[in-house]
Simulated scan of single mutants.
Amino acid sequence: MNAIHLRKRLAVGAVAGLAVVGGVVGLSAYAAPGTEAEPIDAVTVAEVQEGGVRGASALTHEAALAVLDAAQDKAAELDQRVTVAIVDRSGNTVAMVQGDGAGPQSPDSAEAKAYTAVSWGRATSDLTEAAEGEGATIADIPGTLFLAGGVPVVYDGAPIAGIGVGGAPSGDIDEEIALAGLAALENLDG
């Protein structure tokens, strides 16, 4: 997902959220001076039954920070300037660090690799052959990048996040850094 598209989504979401909050708060803000505003009751549109809701596993922010730290530590050890991105199961970026000196293309590359890894539940290096060939391939799917450097985070047999690294001169180095971030999850206290 490119940065411009993500910024548009964030801007639209923020404006919509402000409009809702402004509408609710604004009703009491425009009460006549010296009068007390009536509280607004929430309106229930539909009560969702237990069978209509599913739980989803996601990384905690502590886990995401551990991944970012471990990956950037590995990048420093390898003398690489990279960006590390983490996306959730829906492909939304939940954390990102652009290392000092990382190229301007590295955030987009890292996000796309993370998105690709979580989408297929496999390392992007394992998917490069499927993206090659004549005619339409999986490489035609928007927001994907089939270069090494993206790894999925799997919990209870299903991908719940993707880690992507962009900016090293080779995808193999990006993947080594991503794997260092993934390994940090094994050391978390549960």
Score class of each variant (00 low, 15 high):
residue 88 D to H: 06
residue 88 D to N: 14
residue 88 D to F: 00
residue 89 R to M: 10
residue 89 R to N: 06
residue 90 S to V: 08
residue 91 G to P: 06
residue 92 N to K: 05
residue 92 N to H: 10
residue 92 N to I: 07
residue 93 T to V: 15
residue 94 V to E: 14
residue 95 A to E: 09
residue 95 A to T: 05
residue 97 V to K: 05
residue 97 V to M: 03
residue 98 Q to E: 08
residue 99 G to F: 07
residue 100 D to P: 04
residue 100 D to H: 13
residue 101 G to M: 12
residue 102 A to Q: 02
residue 102 A to L: 00
residue 103 G to A: 10
residue 103 G to R: 11
residue 103 G to H: 01
residue 103 G to T: 09
residue 104 P to C: 06
residue 104 P to G: 10
residue 105 Q to G: 03
residue 105 Q to F: 01
residue 105 Q to M: 01
residue 106 S to R: 08
residue 108 D to A: 11
residue 108 D to Q: 08
residue 108 D to P: 07
residue 109 S to V: 15
residue 110 A to P: 00
residue 110 A to T: 05
residue 110 A to G: 01
residue 110 A to H: 02
residue 111 E to S: 12
residue 111 E to W: 07
residue 111 E to D: 10
residue 112 A to C: 07
residue 114 A to M: 00
residue 115 Y to A: 00
residue 115 Y to R: 00
residue 116 T to Y: 00
residue 116 T to S: 02
residue 116 T to G: 00
residue 117 A to N: 03
residue 117 A to W: 03
residue 118 V to C: 07
residue 118 V to R: 01
residue 119 S to T: 15
residue 120 W to A: 13
residue 120 W to S: 07
residue 120 W to M: 05
residue 120 W to I: 05
residue 122 R to E: 13
residue 123 A to G: 14
residue 124 T to A: 03
residue 124 T to Q: 08
residue 125 S to K: 07
residue 125 S to I: 00
residue 125 S to A: 11
residue 125 S to F: 03
residue 126 D to F: 04
residue 128 T to I: 09
residue 128 T to P: 00
residue 129 E to Q: 14
residue 129 E to F: 15
residue 129 E to K: 13
residue 131 A to P: 15
residue 131 A to F: 00
residue 131 A to Q: 02
residue 132 E to Q: 15
residue 133 G to I: 15
residue 134 E to C: 11
residue 134 E to F: 06
residue 134 E to D: 14
residue 135 G to C: 13
residue 135 G to L: 04
residue 135 G to F: 13
residue 136 A to H: 08
residue 137 T to P: 05
residue 137 T to W: 02
residue 138 I to W: 04
residue 139 A to N: 10
residue 140 D to M: 05
residue 140 D to S: 12
residue 141 I to N: 02
residue 141 I to F: 08
residue 142 P to Y: 14
residue 142 P to E: 15
residue 143 G to W: 02
residue 143 G to T: 05
